[in-house]
Amino acid sequence: MRVFPVYAPKLIVKHARIFLTGVIWVKDLGRLEFEKGRFLLPRKSLPKVKQAILELNELIEAQN
């Protein structure tokens, strides 16, 4: 598990694309899981977490 002390979308996306499957922890967002290079949306999450995951997945799609 990698810990990101700040929310840096480009760096987080780079990590997810390299490792494809895993878990990261982002300060103020908490634990985020990714599989096959995409972030998974938890069943229950705060609106800011949901927005961050959608933003990260959009960045991943834009890079493909």
Rank of each mutant, 00 (worst) to 15 (best):
Lys50Ser: 07
Val23His: 10
Ala16Tyr: 03
Ala52Asn: 03
Phe34Arg: 00
Gln63Arg: 05
Leu56Thr: 00
Asn57Leu: 02
Phe39Pro: 02
Arg43Asp: 05
Arg43Thr: 06
Val49Thr: 06
Lys27Trp: 14
Ala52Lys: 08
Lys10Glu: 12
Thr21Asp: 10
Ala8Arg: 08
Pro42Phe: 09
Gly37Val: 06
Lys10Gln: 12
Ala8Gly: 03
Gln63Gly: 10
Ala8Trp: 12
Arg31Asn: 04
Leu32Thr: 00
Leu11His: 07
Lys44Thr: 08
Leu41Phe: 10
Glu35Ala: 14
Ile12Met: 05
Arg31Asp: 04
Ala52Asp: 01
Ile53Tyr: 04
Gly37Asn: 05
Glu55Thr: 07
Met1Asp: 15
Ile60Ser: 05
Ile24Phe: 05
Phe4Ser: 00
Thr21Ala: 11
His15Tyr: 07
Ala62Trp: 11
Lys27Cys: 15
Arg38His: 11
Arg38Ile: 07
Leu46Ile: 12
Val49Ala: 05
Arg2Asp: 13
Glu35Val: 13
Gln51Thr: 08
Leu29Asn: 00
Gly37Lys: 04
Glu55Lys: 09
Leu56Ser: 00
Val49Phe: 06
Pro42Trp: 06
Leu59Phe: 06
Ala62Arg: 12
Val13Asn: 02
Ile60Leu: 12
Ala62Ser: 11
Ile53Trp: 04
Arg31Tyr: 11
Gln63Tyr: 09
Asn64Gln: 10
Trp25Asn: 04
Val3Ser: 08
Glu58Asn: 10
Lys27Asn: 15
Lys10Leu: 13
Lys50Gln: 07
Asn57Glu: 03
Ala52His: 05
Lys14Thr: 10
Ser45Thr: 12
Gly22Ile: 03
Leu54Arg: 14
Val6Tyr: 14
Phe4Asn: 01
His15Ile: 04
Arg31Gln: 10
Arg38Ala: 06
Ser45Trp: 10
Glu55Ile: 06
Ile60Ala: 07
Tyr7Ser: 01
Val49Met: 13
Val26Cys: 04
Ala8Asp: 09
Arg43Trp: 04
Ile18Arg: 11
Ala62Leu: 12
Glu58Phe: 10
Gly30Glu: 02
Ile18Asp: 12
Tyr7Trp: 13
Ala16Asp: 00
Asn64Ile: 11
Ala62Asp: 09
Leu59Cys: 04
Gln51Val: 07
Glu33Asn: 15
Gly30His: 02
Pro5Phe: 15
Asp28Glu: 09
Val49His: 05
Pro47Tyr: 09
Arg31Glu: 14
Leu59Ser: 04
Leu40His: 06
Arg31Lys: 14
Glu55Met: 07
Lys36Leu: 10
Leu41Cys: 08
Leu20Lys: 07
Ile53Ser: 03
Leu20Glu: 13
Lys36Pro: 03
Ser45Ile: 11
Ala52Val: 08
Lys48Asn: 06
Val23Asn: 06
Arg2Pro: 15
Val23Ser: 07
Leu56Glu: 09
Arg17Asp: 05
Leu41Trp: 08
Val26Ala: 02
Pro42Asp: 06
Phe4Ala: 00
Phe4Val: 02
Leu41His: 11
Pro42Leu: 08
Thr21Gly: 07
Ile18Ser: 10
Val13Tyr: 03
Gln63Asn: 08
Phe4Glu: 01
Lys44Glu: 06
His15Val: 05
Thr21Val: 08
Leu11Met: 08
Ile24Val: 07
Tyr7Lys: 01
Val6Asp: 05
Gly22Ala: 04
Phe19Asn: 13
Gly30Arg: 01
Leu40Met: 11
Val23Asp: 05
Lys27Ser: 13
Gln63Met: 12
Ile18Thr: 13
Phe39Cys: 02
Leu40Thr: 08
Phe34Cys: 03
Gln51Ala: 13
Tyr7Ala: 01
Leu32Asp: 01
Ala16Lys: 00
Arg38Asn: 06
Val23Met: 09
Lys27Gln: 13
Ile60Arg: 04
Lys10Tyr: 14
Glu33Leu: 12
Leu54Ala: 11
Pro47Ala: 14
Lys27Ile: 14
Leu46Ala: 12
Ile60Lys: 02
Lys14Leu: 10
Lys50Val: 08
Gln51Gly: 10
Arg38Leu: 10
Arg31Met: 06
Glu61Trp: 08
Val3Met: 03
Gln51Leu: 10
Pro5Tyr: 15
Phe39Ile: 03
Leu11Ala: 12
Ile60Val: 08
Leu41Glu: 06
Arg31His: 04
Ile60Thr: 05
Ala62Thr: 11
Phe39Asn: 02
Ser45Pro: 09
Lys48Ile: 08
Ile60His: 04
Val3Asp: 07
Gln51Asp: 08
Pro9Leu: 03
Val13Ser: 09
Trp25Ser: 04
Phe34Tyr: 05
Lys27Arg: 05
Leu41Gln: 08
Leu41Lys: 11
Gln51Phe: 11
Ile24His: 00
Phe34Gln: 00
His15Met: 04
Glu61Asp: 12
Leu32Gln: 00
Leu59His: 05
Phe19Asp: 05
His15Cys: 05
Glu35Phe: 12
Leu59Thr: 05
Glu33Trp: 15
Asn57Ala: 02
Ala52Gly: 03
Ala52Met: 05
Lys48Phe: 07
Glu55Gln: 09
Phe19Gln: 12
Phe34Trp: 04
Gly30Thr: 02
Leu41Gly: 04
Lys36Thr: 15
Lys27Met: 15
Lys10Phe: 14
Ser45Lys: 09
Arg2Val: 15
Pro9Gly: 04
Leu32Glu: 01
Arg2Leu: 15
Tyr7Cys: 03
Ile53Asp: 00
Trp25Arg: 05
Lys50Cys: 06
Phe39Glu: 03
Leu11Pro: 08
Val26Gly: 00
Arg17Ala: 12
Pro47Asp: 07
Val3Ala: 04
Val13Cys: 06
Lys50Ile: 06
Leu11Arg: 08
